[in-house]
Deep mutational scan, measured.
Amino acid sequence: KFGRVHERAEGPAKILAIGTATPFHWVDQSSYPDYYFRVTNSDHLVDLKEKFRRICNRTMISKRHMFLTEEILQKNPNLCSHNEPSFDVRQDILVSEIPKLGKEAVLMAIDEWAQPKSKITHLVFCTRSGVDMPGADYQLIKLLGLSPSVQRVMMYQQGCFAGGTMLRLAKDLAENNKGARVLVVCAESSAIGFRGPSEDHPDNLIAQALFGDGAAALIIGSDPKMGLERPIFEIVTTAQTFVPNGDCHLALHLREMGLTFHCTKDVPPTIAKNVESCLIKAFEPLGISDWNSIFWILHPGGNAIVDQVESTLGLEPNKLQATRNILREYGNLSSACVLFILDEIRKKSGREGLKTSGDGLDLGVLLSFGPGLTIETVVLR
Rank of each mutant, 00 (worst) to 15 (best):
K1G: 10
F2G: 07
R4W: 10
R4G: 13
H6Y: 06
H6M: 12
E7R: 08
A9M: 06
A9N: 02
A9S: 06
A9T: 06
E10A: 13
E10I: 12
G11S: 02
A13Y: 00
A13E: 03
K14V: 05
K14L: 11
K14Y: 02
A17L: 07
I18E: 02
I18A: 01
I18C: 04
I18K: 03
G19Q: 11
G19T: 05
A21D: 07
A21T: 06
A21I: 01
T22Q: 09
F24E: 12
F24V: 13
H25N: 06
W26D: 01
W26E: 12
W26T: 04
V27E: 12
V27N: 00
S31L: 04
Y32F: 13
P33Q: 04
Y35H: 06
Y36C: 12
F37G: 09
F37T: 07
F37D: 01
T40M: 11
N41D: 10
S42K: 11
S42I: 08
H44W: 15
L45M: 14
D47W: 06
L48P: 09
L48H: 12
K49V: 05
K49E: 10
K49C: 03
K51W: 04
K51P: 05
F52H: 02
I55G: 04
N57R: 00
R58I: 07
M60L: 08
M60G: 15
I61M: 01
I61C: 08
S62A: 12
K63L: 05
K63V: 09
R64A: 00
R64S: 04
H65L: 07
H65R: 07
M66G: 13
L68G: 06
T69W: 11
E71V: 03
E71L: 03
E71P: 14
L73Q: 11
Q74H: 08
N76G: 09
N76R: 11
N76T: 11
N78I: 07
N78M: 01
N78Y: 03
L79W: 05
L79N: 06
C80N: 00
S81R: 12
H82S: 01
N83A: 15
S86T: 12
S86W: 06
F87G: 13
D88E: 13
V89C: 12
V89S: 12
Q91W: 01
Q91F: 01
Q91S: 15
D92M: 11
I93Y: 15
S96L: 04
S96Y: 05
E97G: 07
P99S: 14
K100G: 10
L101R: 08
L101G: 06
L101I: 06
G102S: 12
E104D: 11
A105H: 01
V106D: 06
M108S: 09
I110L: 15
E112M: 05
W113R: 05
W113M: 06
W113K: 03
K117S: 12
K119E: 13
I120M: 06
I120A: 07
T121S: 13
H122I: 02
V124I: 05
F125W: 14
T127I: 12
S129C: 15
S129V: 08
G130L: 14
V131E: 11
V131N: 15
D132V: 13
D132L: 10
M133Q: 03
G135L: 15
D137G: 11
D137I: 04
Y138H: 11
Y138S: 14
Y138C: 07
Q139M: 09
Q139L: 12
Q139S: 15
Q139Y: 02
L140K: 06
L143G: 02
L143W: 08
L146S: 00
L146W: 02
L146I: 07
S147V: 01
L228T: 02
L228Q: 06
I232W: 06
E234K: 04
E234A: 03
V236Y: 04
V236R: 04
T237F: 02
T238K: 02
T238I: 03
A239P: 03
Q240C: 00
T241F: 12
F242G: 11
F242P: 15
V243P: 04
V243R: 07
N245S: 12
N245L: 12
G246D: 09
C248G: 13
L250R: 13
L250H: 15
L250V: 11
A251S: 09
A251D: 10
A251Q: 14
H253A: 13
L254D: 15
E256V: 05
E256A: 09
E256Q: 10
M257V: 06
M257Q: 15
M257N: 09
G258A: 05
T260S: 14
F261W: 09
F261V: 08
H262I: 01
C263W: 09
T264D: 05
K265G: 12
D266Q: 12
V267L: 14
V267W: 12
P268Q: 05
P269S: 11
I271T: 12
N274Q: 14
N274S: 13
E276T: 10
S277D: 10
C278S: 05
L279M: 11
I280F: 04
F283S: 02
E284K: 07
E284D: 07
L286C: 05
D290V: 04
W291E: 03
W291Q: 01
S293P: 08
F295C: 03
W296P: 12
I297M: 05
I297H: 06
L298M: 14
H299I: 00
H299T: 04
H299D: 11
H299F: 11
H299G: 14
P300Y: 12
G301H: 01
G301Y: 00
N303Y: 14
N303Q: 15
A304N: 09
A304E: 13
A304P: 09
I305F: 11
D307R: 05
Q308V: 11
V309C: 06
E310K: 09
E310N: 00
S311I: 02
S311W: 09
S311G: 09
L313C: 06
G314M: 01
L315W: 01
N318L: 04
N318G: 10
K319L: 01
Q321A: 07
Q321P: 07
Q321C: 15
A322S: 05
R324W: 03
R324V: 01
N325M: 14
N325K: 12
I326P: 05
L327Q: 11
R328L: 07
R328F: 13
E329A: 03
G331W: 01
L333S: 12
S335N: 13
S335Y: 00
A336M: 00
A336S: 12
C337I: 01
V338P: 14
V338C: 10
L339Y: 15
I341K: 11
I341Y: 00
L342H: 07
E344G: 02
I345A: 06
R346K: 05
K347C: 02
S349D: 02
S349I: 02
G350H: 00
R351E: 08
T356F: 08
T356A: 06
S357Q: 04
S357W: 11
S357V: 08
G358I: 05
D359H: 09
G360C: 05
G360Q: 13
L361D: 15
L363A: 14
G364R: 01
G364A: 02
G364D: 01
V365M: 13
L366R: 08
L367F: 09
L367G: 15
S368L: 01
F369Q: 15
G372M: 13
G372R: 11
G372L: 14
L373I: 12
E376G: 01
E376C: 01
T377K: 02
T377C: 00
T377L: 00
L380I: 04
L380F: 05
R381N: 00
R381P: 12
